[in-house]
Design a protein around this nucleic acid. Structure first.
Lengths: 196, 196
DNA sequence: ACGAGACGGTACCGTACAGTACCTTCTCCT
DNA sequence: AGGAGAAGGTACTGTACGGTACCGTCTCGT
C-alpha cells in the first residue's frame, strides 16, 4: 500500500503531519535522542518525504522551533485578549503559565530546550530561541505599558527572567509551585514599578 | 607506550583526569553529542579505564553532575564568606553570577543543562539536578535569614527563580545583562520583604 | 487518458556510538 | 624478586543514526 489507500494526496497535510510528530517527539525526548526514522514512522510518512520537505534533520528542527515559537506567542496573545488590559492582564499571563506547568507531560519550553540541547553557536537553532525571547519581551512590554508601569522595558526584562526561571525550575523538579512563586514575585515587582 | 612513560600510577589522578575532561566536553557540547571515545582521547585515557571507573556513560554523567553541583555550591559559599552577612551578601551572590555569565565559553549551568538534555524521568541524571536546586534554595534561605528578611523560605524560592531565569536567558542570548537585571529585581524583592 | 508529481516501502551507505576483549607495559607492595 | 593491580593501545561487535537511491503506486490537472 504505497500512498495510503483512501486519502486524498495533500502535500501540506503531509508536511503538517510530519511537523506535528516532530514537535511531539522532540519535546518528549529531546532533539538528539529522536531519529528521523522514528519521526517518519510516527507520522506515517517515509524518510524521503521528510527530506523533501525539510532538507535535513536540522531543517526539520528549525521548522519545529519556528512553529512552536509562533504557536506559543499566538496562544498567549489570544488568551490574554479576554482579560481587561492593565495589571490584571499581566498577572493573567502568569496564571496561564502556571496552568501550562501543571499539564501532563510538561517538560519545559520546547524552544529553550532545543537551544540548550544545541550548543553549536551559529545556525537557526540558536537564533530562533533568541528571537523567541525578544518577542516575549516585547509582548511583556506591551502588557506593562498598558498597565501604566514605569520603565516598562526594564520591568519586561525582569518579568521574563521570572518566566524563564519558573519554566526551567518546574521542568526539573516537576512541582508547579514555581508558577505561583513567579506570579507572587511579579506582583511585588509590579507594585514597586507602579509606586515609583 | 602503554601506561604513560615517566609518571607514577595514581588511580585517583586518572579518574580525576577523566572526570575533568568529561566536565569540560559535556559542558561545551552537551551530554549526547560527546562520545566516550572523545572523552578518553581528551583525557589521555583508554575507554576501558573510563568503564572501570564509572561503569557506564550514564555513570560518568552522574559523576560529572555530582562534581559540578558540589563545585558550584562550594564556590559560592567560599566566595560569599568574604562578604559581610546580610543584604549585602545576598546581592553579592548575584554579582558572582553576573561575573560568571560574562566568562568566555559560558553556556548555562551544566547541571540544569544535563537535566534538560535528559528527558528520561527516572535515574540520577534527573534526581541530581533536583537536589541541586534544593541545596541552592537552602543556601539562599540561609543568606536571607542572615539579612533579616521576612518569610525567607518564600523569598528564597523567588530569588532562585530569578537566578535560574537569568542563567538560562544569558545562555541563550549571550548578553550578560540578565545578571544585572536579576540583581535589580532581587533588590526590589528584598526591599519589599524587609519592609513587610 | 495520460503524464506529472506526491508518496510510502525497502534497501542501502558510511559513520559513529556504547560497550567488551585481549594484550602489553608500567609501578607499586610484599 | 615477583605478583597484583593500574593503565593504554588496538581491535572488535552490534546497533543506530543521517542521508540517499530506486521502485511501485496513488491522485490530480489538463
Amino acid at each position: 500500500m504505497p500512498v495510503k489507500p483512501g486519502a486524498t494526496i495533500d502535500p501540506r497535510a503531509t508536511r503538517a503531519r510530519v511537523l506535528s510528530s516532530a514537535v511531539q517527539l522532540f519535546y518528549e525526548r529531546g532533539v538528539h535522542t529522536v531519529g528521523v526514522d522514528e519521526i517518519a514512522h510516527h507520522a506515517g510518512a517515509s524518510k524521503l518525504t521528510i527530506y523533501r520537505n525539510f532538507g535535513s534533520k536540522e531543517g526539520l528542527v528549525e521548522a519545529v522551533l519556528e512553529y512552536r515559537s509562533e504557536h506559543i506567542h499566538r496562544w498567549l496573545v489570544t488568551r490574554l485578549e479576554g482579560v481587561p488590559a492593565g495589571r490584571e492582564r499581566v498577572l493573567a499571563l502568569f496564571d496561564l503559565l502556571t496552568r501550562w506547568y501543571a499539564r501532563d507531560g510538561y517538560c519545559g519550553c520546547a524552544v529553550v530546550n532545543a537551544a540548550v540541547e544545541t550548543r553549536h553557536l551559529d545556525g537557526p537553532v540558536r537564533q530562533l530561541p533568541r528571537a523567541h525571547l525578544t518577542r516575549y519581551r516585547e509582548l511583556l512590554e506591551e502588557l506593562l505599558a498598558g498597565a501604566g508601569a514605569g520603565r516598562p522595558e526594564t520591568l519586561a526584562r525582569h518579568l521574563l527572567i521570572l518566566i524563564e526561571g519558573a519554566t526551567t525550575i518546574t521542568a526539573i523538579d516537576g512541582d508547579p509551585a514555581a508558577g505561583h512563586d513567579a506570579r507572587a514575585a511579579a506582583e511585588v515587582l509590579l507594585d514597586a514599578a507602579c509606586a515609583a
